[in-house]
């Protein structure tokens, strides 16, 4: 696993999850997640996915430092999510970050792309359930883990402003 592909996987994950890199690294699981995708789908799929993401970023690159959000959204749908091979994998990467699980891909996909290990649903580590971004997104603790402290339930959930509906882009 090269440092370069790890960095690319992080960038891809930032675009897929809408969480910042600091939050993704803050789970302590980024390396395991990339390894999981590799194990499940094979190197070829991962390389293609990262390549498609690079291309989508290029499509959306304006003159500014950060990509044009609208263009990036369109490019991601065009190059990744609507792609029969990469789309299901990208959706699974999102689930991986949010739920800490690799959800088995359907036989139509695994048969077609000869990656049978991708069919198995499995957790990554015991920590991945706790670190699922889903809990951060709804400002709740994973039930049974990461105790939030007595009386915390009397407080309103602390959801970051940029994730609220009225937040401006």
């Amino acid at each position: 696993m090269t440092a370069h592909s790890f960095k690319e996987f992080l960038l891809l994950s930032v675009d897929l999850t809408a969480f910042e890199e600091t939050d993704l690294l803050g789970t302590g699981l980024a390396h395991q997640y990339l390894a999981k995708v590799r194990d499940a789908c094979g190197e070829g799929v991962v390389t293609a996915l990262l390549g498609a993401h690079r291309a989508a970023r290029a499509d959306a690159a304006g003159d500014a430092e950060s990509p044009d959000r609208t263009l990036l959204d369109r490019a991601l749908r065009h190059r990744i999510f609507s792609d029969d091979r990469l789309g299901p994998v990208a959706r699974n990467v999102i689930k991986l970050w949010y739920a800490g699980m690799w959800y088995g891909l359907p036989p139509e996909w695994t048969d077609c792309y000869e990656a049978r290990t991708a069919a198995e649903t499995s957790t990554v580590t015991a920590a991945s359930y706790q670190e699922g971004l889903l809990w951060r997104a709804i400002a709740a603790n994973p039930p049974g883990a990461k105790a939030p402290g007595y009386g915390s339930w009397a407080q309103p959930p602390r959801i970051e402003a940029r994730y609220l509906k009225e937040a401006t882009q």
């Binding site: 402290g149 009386g151 602390r158």
Partner: peptide, 10 residues
């Protein structure tokens, strides 16, 4: 101090 508890968890 009751509130301090969940502060510490954060």
């Amino acid at each position: 101090l009751q509130d301090a508890i969940w502060h510490m968890f954060r």
